[in-house]
């Protein structure tokens, strides 16, 4: 069994552990999510589809006979992902997820407790979604030479539609840039790139990498710029005007930015109002559109269409 996936077993009670150990052996590296919903069947999502987990750990496309999650199961898993210290994870819970050992992210839903229009915590937890962390070493091999040129890293915007592999490529790119001795900083507002657990990145993002996780991108980029003297700043998904503004402040300072955004092609991206100011003489030097050429975990190959300004 994949050791990283096996880490998840440390967060479930004994009865689920026995069941899921068998399930993990069956699903192998195709496992993507484990859905734990109170009073509903235990479901695993794999790259081959969605399956219900039977009490003996076998998986079935039909939910009949599946193991039904008890509220005590859900409570135990929630307590475990919070290391039996819910107060210590209050900020993560507010954001709706907790990162556990192995870099897996556990999404939380339920009856929210709201204060001043913002979610403060959850009064009752109704479901948890353990998203299996995946790291594809070498995912950026096809594009790395277009970005790291002799003596310079190019300001680059990676573009792909949702689920197009942007984060996977960006993570590997961070590792490859950093491992060349280039001081790299990551502004990771959703904790998806490095997946820090107790201060240690669970994904290999390189030896020269500093990470700010869970802070707003706009704030994190400026903080990194001021405090860590980075040569390259890496950030995922520019989606708001504030994100774009903070990135524009990096241009012209000698710091290179490698970022991603949703999109299908370079023209659409250039035309987006929040992004249009990021191109030009001091902005992104190239847009790389990612196309998924292969299917299947660990065999994904990301082809590129590079469009240089």
């Amino acid at each position: 069994m994949n050791m990283r996936i096996a880490e998840i077993l440390g967060y479930v009670p004994d009865n689920l552990r026995v069941m899921l150990r068998k399930t993990f052996e069956l699903t192998g590296d195709t496992l993507q999510e484990i859905r734990i919903r109170c009073g509903l069947p235990l479901i695993v999502n794999t790259s081959h589809g969605s399956f219900a987990v039977l009490p003996n750990g076998e998986i079935s496309p039909a939910v009949g006979g599946a193991y039904i999650i008890k509220s005590s199961d859900l409570k135990r898993v929630f307590q475990a992902i919070c290391e039996n210290s819910v107060y210590a994870y209050a900020e993560d819970i507010k954001q709706g997820f907790v990162t556990i050992r192995g870099g897996h992210r556990v999404g939380i839903t339920g009856r929210a407790s709201v204060c001043s229009g913002r979610v403060e915590s959850f009064r009752e937890i109704s479901s948890l979604n353990i998203r299996v962390a995946r790291e594809v070493v070498g995912a950026a091999n096809n594009i790395v030479d277009s970005i790291i040129t002799p003596g310079k890293v190019k300001n680059t915007l990676l573009v792909a539609p949702p689920m197009g592999g942007k984060t996977t490529v960006l993570r590997d790119l961070a590792r490859q840039i950093s491992d060349q001795g280039i001081k790299t900083s990551i502004a990771d507002d959703r904790g998806e790139l490095a997946c820090i657990y107790k201060g240690i990145p669970q994904n290999n993002v390189g030896v020269q990498t500093d990470v700010i996780e869970n802070a707003s991108k706009a704030e994190a980029v400026i903080m990194l710029l001021r405090s860590m003297s980075p040569q390259v700043i890496i950030t995922d998904e520019i989606s708001t005007a504030k994100d774009a503004e903070s990135i524009s402040q990096c241009f012209g300072t000698g710091v290179t930015v490698v970022a991603t955004t949703h999109g299908d092609n370079a023209e659409d991206v250039r035309a987006r109002p929040i992004l249009k100011d990021l191109f030009g003489s001091m902005g992104f030097e190239q847009i790389i559109v990612l196309r998924k050429e292969g299917v299947g975990l660990n065999t994904e190959i990301f082809g590129t269409v590079s469009e240089v300004n």
Binding site: K75, Q79, C82, N84, S85, V86, Y87, A90, S121
Partner: peptide, 10 residues
């Protein structure tokens, strides 16, 4: 109830 509540509860 240790470990199951927010700061105030603890």
């Amino acid at each position: 109830t240790l470990g199951s509540g927010n700061k105030e509860k603890e």
